[in-house]
């Protein structure tokens, strides 16, 4: 089934929630994302059994969440995208639809700061529990030290006060 027919099928069930299309999928409304995902998994012709990847992209003024779905029996795939505002990124969790969303959403929360409602156990997964900030956002600055360990290491080849350039850092 090609991408346009899949989008038409979803549009048939959720006429107002499907927004702009693109080559491999479509934007959808953030409130109805969970219902659309449930439909994609349970519908006979789509049968998207697997959520391959769930990630976020920081586009400067807003965040974009990207869901890659695939069906092993029908051998087709689809991309769903959702736009969220940067300071208040809240969306429903799809953990009840695909169990793999559990850890993937925890990673998204840890690195981007997106809040997932109704997630069974939303806490940091990659970074220590007392880390400040969300690293993969574009405006993140790393701390100068963590628990007494300093963040940088003096390079003995570079004279004091200068930064690394190709002339002085190649020995």
């Amino acid at each position: 089934m090609d991408v346009q027919s899949q989008i038409n099928l979803i549009k048939g069930k959720f006429p107002n929630e499907v927004l702009e299309n693109f080559a491999t999928g479509t934007f959808v409304n953030a409130e109805k994302l969970k219902a659309i995902c449930q439909f994609c998994r349970d519908n006979e012709e789509l049968s998207m059994q697997v959520l391959t990847c769930m990630t976020a992209v920081d586009l400067g003024d807003h965040l974009e969440l990207v869901y890659h779905l695939i069906s092993y029996s029908k051998k087709h795939d689809l991309v769903l995208k959702v736009t969220l505002p940067r300071d208040n990124a809240v969306i429903d969790s799809v953990e009840s639809v695909w169990k793999t969303a559990d850890w993937q959403e925890r990673e998204c929360f840890d690195l981007f700061g997106v809040n997932f409602k109704n997630h069974p156990d939303l806490r940091r997964i990659m970074l220590p529990d007392d880390w400040q900030g969300h690293p993969l956002r574009k405006d993140y600055t790393p701390p100068t030290e963590y628990h007494g360990m300093s963040h940088t290491r003096k390079n003995p080849l570079i004279p004091e006060g200068q930064s690394a350039t190709t002339e002085n850092s190649n020995g």
Partner: peptide, 14 residues
């Protein structure tokens, strides 16, 4: 990994 935010730059710091 010099530009990474979570890597300890050398184990002789600890």
């Amino acid at each position: 990994f010099q530009s990474s935010y979570s890597v300890l730059k050398g184990v002789d710091k600890v």
